[in-house]
């Protein structure tokens, strides 16, 4: 038994190492090893997410509320009564499948309408409250003094943030008037944005290098046993 587990783990390590090298090989050019890894990735991951969707979403949220005894299949306690409201998404889901039948495809529009309606509603509320109002509050709090006793560096930073934010916002106001005619303020705004993007870029580099080192460590340690 131990021998089987060991050889199986051994196989899994070799498989992981092969797939790692196959993906790295794409840096040189497209090749049969990459094609194999890529197609395996697609097949395995597509089915993996579908299986997760079935057991983690459909079964507990749609099948069990409609057929309480179905909870026993997964070792859960059945709910006291049916929840027929779940028929609504089930029907909407089935209507979406009608898109495969050209004659009834337009029925799927109601499902699309429902989904885009929920997306629009949630996005509107979330972005209005969490992003627009919150960010506005953050900027204002960054630039107005907390009290009368503030130092020169804080005043400088506050004025800088204020001017930089206004110019960046102004850049977006001017984008529709063609960049050639962009004025000094919107150009400054673009430079502020580029500085912020540079900061994001620089911050991400370290994380990605760590990931690369991690993969190389797997190859040299777990697989080859050199380290």
């Amino acid at each position: 038994m131990i021998c089987v587990i060991t050889s199986s783990s051994h196989f899994e390590t070799w498989l992981a190492a092969f797939l790692t090298l196959a993906v790295f090989s794409f840096l040189y050019r497209d090749n049969p090893f990459y094609k194999f890894a890529e197609h395996l990735f697609v097949g395995v991951s597509a089915a993996y997410w579908m299986v997760l969707g079935f057991w983690s979403t459909l079964w507990p949220n749609a099948v069990v509320p409609l057929f309480p005894d179905a909870a026993l299949v997964v070792g859960a306690t059945p709910p006291a009564q049916r929840d027929l409201i779940i028929l609504v998404p089930v029907i909407l889901g089935l209507m979406m499948l009608l898109k495969m039948v050209p004659r009834y495809a337009s029925w799927g529009n109601y499902t699309t309408a429902f989904i885009i309606g929920t997306t629009a509603g949630y996005s509107l509320v979330r972005y209005l409250r969490s992003d627009f109002i919150y960010q506005l509050g953050s900027i204002i709090k960054s630039v107005i003094p907390e009290s009368a006793n503030i130092g020169l560096p804080e005043v400088f930073n506050s004025i800088f943030i204020l001017l930089a934010t206004i110019s960046a916002l102004y850049y977006f106001l001017r984008i529709r008037t063609n960049k050639r005619s962009a004025n000094f303020i919107s150009r400054c705004g673009l430079l502020v944005l580029m500085t912020a993007f540079g900061v994001s870029f620089g911050s991400a580099v370290m994380g990605r290098v760590t990931l690369l080192v991690d993969r190389l460590y797997f190859l040299f340690s777990d697989w080859m046993g050199i380290l």
């Binding site: 996005s123 953050s138 944005l193 500085t195």
Partner: peptide, 29 residues
């Protein structure tokens, strides 16, 4: 840079993105 220009740039992006999302959502609604 992280605390000052980055804060200003990121917040300007977030505010304008939120406005974009709001406008698109309103368009559909």
């Amino acid at each position: 840079m992280l605390l000052v220009p980055n804060t200003a740039g990121q917040r300007a992006v977030l505010i304008t993105v939120s406005l974009g999302v709001i406008a698109v959502a309103l368009k559909y609604i």
